[in-house]
């Protein structure tokens, strides 16, 4: 397990969360160090997306704390949260593209709204990110014309267009063919190494964690039940881990 060195930039302290009667997180604790990529694995519907939503302050915990870059997200001011979020990228599970904006306008949106960059500069950056996710020439397509996998990659381009320091990926591989899926994995790895991006990747693919993750946590029953490097995981003799990794998902 890669431990010493870097300071922690994201920390969940005993986070619990219920929606009405449905308890989703029960004392979830985890930590991500600066520059590290943490993968979260777990069965469907267990609260992985909810965990990521906590990390960007979209959801507030019922109890416990979420600390990002020394800010407690339940007490942070609106203004600080805005500034913090400008340094973050978030890939939503379904892409969450704005339906009436074209692919290019979607990717350009955060730059248009939050920077004073000239139109040509924005256009250039957008084309560059679209190329990065292998979607050259899709600038003028509308979201309803895209496949699920394409939507996902546009979402990824939008999450990366501001060159964020912290990126959250909610299942970056779903809906992608194995080849593109692999290239997205390498893209995530490459960004982490080249730009020292800190990230959390939610995934259920062993092939993904082997490429991208420095560390993996397994989640069940609303909390982390196993933690280690990808290598430790695939060699693990722990019955629960073995059972978990052998389970076919989706």
């Amino acid at each position: 397990m890669k431990d010493g060195g870097g300071q922690s930039i994201i920390r969940f302290e005993e986070v619990s969360k219920a929606f009405g009667p449905k308890v989703v997180l029960r004392g979830m604790s985890l930590e991500v160090k600066r520059g590290e990529t943490l993968a979260i694995m777990g069965p469907s519907g267990i609260g992985k997306s909810v965990t990521l939503r906590h990390a960007v302050g979209l959801v507030q915990p019922d109890s416990g704390r979420v600390i990002v870059d020394d800010h407690d997200l339940s007490t942070i001011s609106r203004e600080d949260l805005r500034e913090l979020r400008k340094r973050m990228g978030y890939l939503f599970q379904e892409g969450a593209l704005i339906n009436w904006l074209s692919v290019g306008e979607n990717v350009a949106l955060p730059l248009r709204e939050n920077t004073d960059l000239a139109d040509e500069v924005i256009r250039e950056k957008v084309e560059e990110k679209l190329a990065l996710v292998q979607l050259r020439g899709t600038y003028d397509l509308m979201p309803p014309e895209l496949s699920g996998g394409m939507r996902k990659r546009v979402g990824l381009a939008r999450a990366l267009v501001t060159d964020p320091e912290i990126v959250f990926y909610d299942e970056p591989n779903t809906g992608l063919d194995p080849e593109i899926s692999m290239s997205i994995n390498h893209l995530i790895r490459d960004l982490a190494e080249r730009l020292q991006i800190t990230s959390i990747v939610v995934t259920h693919l062993v092939s993904c964690i082997l490429v991208v993750a420095d560390r993996v946590v397994l989640v069940d029953q609303g909390r982390v039940f196993a933690e280690g490097t990808p290598d430790e995981f695939i060699r693990s003799q722990d019955e629960r881990v073995v059972r978990f990794l052998a389970k076919p998902y989706d």
Binding site: L58, L97, L109
Partner: peptide, 22 residues
Amino acid sequence: GTMAVSEELAALEVLSIDRVSY
């Protein structure tokens, strides 16, 4: 409403785009 249930509003929020203004 469609934006709300398909996480588009959440996406705007994470992108620090003010939904009232936008």
